[in-house]
Write a protein that binds this DNA or RNA. Structure first.
Lengths: 219, 219
DNA sequence: ATTAAATTTTAGGTAAATCTAAAAAATATT
DNA sequence: AATATTTTTTAGATTTACCTAAAATTTAAT
């Protein structure tokens, strides 16, 4: 089946939201897509007719198996283009998202499979998110939020939330990126902030809001 | 100013047609874009309001200077992507057009300028068409149709029409590509066909229709 | 258990880009 | 020059993807 750019944006967003939420609400989608709730309802009805999701009025929405397949192919395109932009064209990691947002809607399968090969079948995009393979298989996530890290345990940043430009700019300024090794020195229960140490750099404090969008793996 | 995909397709097509025609008619556009003449009229009115072309009812249309600039930037995107697809992803030259048709509408200037640099500032696309530079400058065309070539003069193919897939497939089958050296051995006035010799290959006859879409430079 | 608040849907409307059918204008033919 | 033909435009509809305002439903608070 064939999907418009608008439909693809809904599918991709529902997929992302249902990772954590299981049942996605109209308001969540409305906020995420910057459209009015009434427009979301409209689109959900249309996508339901295309049989890629389960939608019951007032009870939220969930992609079915077909929908998940579509979502994974969009995510694959997005992340491969992000990798291309960063690796081959030298874009900063905080600049790739918006351009990939447009490129992802070019839907030739042959294009994407050849791009994948050209890039050497990369496993993750520049934010550390896993890239689904041509069969739609995606690596299970085995990292956790920096807020979850135990004190004095060393970890490496493997993933960061891939949404907000101001967030990514802030990380760049704090010199935190994929592969950065760090350790929690202190944890403030008052506001949930954490004090971390990165090799060679002075101690810095991160707000809970920031820390919970940085994902690490123990080393 | 910003243009929709549909608008960009009109602008690009008007630009191409006005190279030979100067004043482009509604019917020509309708045929080229596979839309009804009534739809063309609608769009021309809208583009006139955006002040990128001169359009008088019943008298055809012509891009003005601003329109030409827009057209050249679309053509630049299209041809750079074609080059990328052929050179980096290994697509056949007859497969690149349709995919580039979609990629060309991703309009980030930074993306295109970085792509240009990554590709080594190529001068022509896989069909031999010149690629406008970042300032919109494009190489003047100094080749001529194969039908124009004098008998027994050697020439090299520098350009082929970039429209029809069946045309490009036929060229591939006849082993004619950019850079192919050839010579006209005989010319048949009855149907305008020409007999040509390509090094190592037996003599072949090309219809006028085919020959007039192959462009050469004397060597 | 009502009432209040928040969420979601319905109803009706708009703009872009297309269409068909009919009218108008330009071009070609006799 | 009058008529026929072709081309182009106008008028009115349709689909997609959005919107606002009002109604319906669910959830929270008293």
């Amino acid at each position: 089946m064939n999907f418009s750019t608008a439909e693809e944006n809904y599918i991709k967003t529902i997929w992302r939201l249902q990772q954590s939420d299981s049942n996605v609400t109209t308001n969540e989608l409305s906020a995420e897509l910057q459209t009015k709730p009434a427009s979301v309802t409209d689109m959900l009805k249309r996508l339901k007719e295309k049989k890629i999701l389960n939608y019951e009025p007032y009870y939220g929405v969930k992609l079915n198996n077909d929908g998940k397949k579509v979502a994974l192919s969009i995510v694959r395109r997005h992340r491969l283009w992000e990798f291309f932009l960063a690796e081959k064209l030298g874009f900063d990691w905080d600049a790739v998202h918006d351009i990939a947002e447009e490129l992802e809607h070019v839907s030739s399968t042959e294009l994407i499979d050849r791009l994948d090969q050209f890039l050497g079948f990369p496993k993750t995009d520049p934010h550390g998110d896993p890239i689904p393979d041509s069969k739609g298989r995606i690596e299970a996530i085995n990292h956790f939020a920096l807020t979850q890290l135990k004190e004095f345990q060393t970890a490496v940043v493997v993933n960061v939330a891939d949404q907000d430009n101001s967030f990514l700019e802030m990380l760049k300024q704090k010199k935190i990126g994929i592969g950065t090794k760090l350790e929690i020195k202190q944890r403030f229960s008052y506001d949930g902030s954490v004090e971390i140490k990165i090799r060679n750099l002075p101690l810095i404090t991160l707000s809970e809001q920031l820390a919970k969008n940085i994902f690490v793996k123990a080393v």
